[in-house]
Write a protein that binds this DNA or RNA. Structure first.
Length: 167
DNA sequence: TCAATGATTTTG
DNA sequence: AAAATCATTGAT
């Protein structure tokens, strides 16, 4: 198996996020292995980043982001959509990458619905889980960047950081 | 353009 | 204990 290892995730989120593009997300469900190419991500970086949930400090909800890279952070938004995030960086450094889109699926809420990802994946490790992991893929030709989506409340300078990466 | 919908956080 | 917030989507 070609599973990505711990050293991939423990780097700074701004290195990991663009590096996730083109990688393969594998899900084992209903006796089948489904795989999808990651095509759109956003980086959330530290307590200073007002768009990051960890800006409120360490709480029961954000605790996951303070873990060592490679675990999954799931939360519900707008009362109906599960958001799928990958924790990055070293222990006690709250960083995560929001997976916003896969090659056939655009939209962070749509992809979790399609892949049947819910709160039961919260805290699951991509390094050891039997049902979800990442594998190497082809390197994308070109990577685009833009400000992040839906975070106007965060204010400057966070609203204008080009921390959204897509193919 | 805006209603749906619920866990988390704040006291609006 | 009650109200506001919110990394969205899909239907009008």
């Amino acid at each position: 198996m070609n599973r990505l290892q711990e050293s991939f995730y423990t780097r700074d989120v701004l290195e990991v996020a663009p590096d996730l593009l083109g990688k393969t997300l594998c899900i084992h469900s209903e006796n089948m292995i489904h795989s999808y190419i990651i095509s759109e991500v956003e980086a959330y970086r530290g307590e200073e980043d007002k768009a990051c949930h960890a800006s409120k400090g360490r709480t029961t909800r954000t605790e996951i982001m303070y873990r060592n890279g490679g675990v999954i952070y799931i939360y519900l938004i707008y009362g109906m959509h599960w958001m799928f995030n990958i924790v990055c960086g070293e222990k006690d450094v709250p960083q995560a990458v929001l997976i916003r889109g896969l090659q056939e699926i655009s939209g962070p809420g749509r992809l979790t619905k399609k892949l049947k990802i819910d709160s039961s994946f919260n805290g699951e490790s991509l390094l050891s889980s039997e049902r979800i992991w990442l594998e190497n893929g082809s390197k994308p030709d070109k990577i685009f960047t833009s400000p992040r989506i839906g975070i106007a409340y965060a204010g400057e300078p966070w609203t204008s950081k080009n921390w959204r990466f897509f193919i």
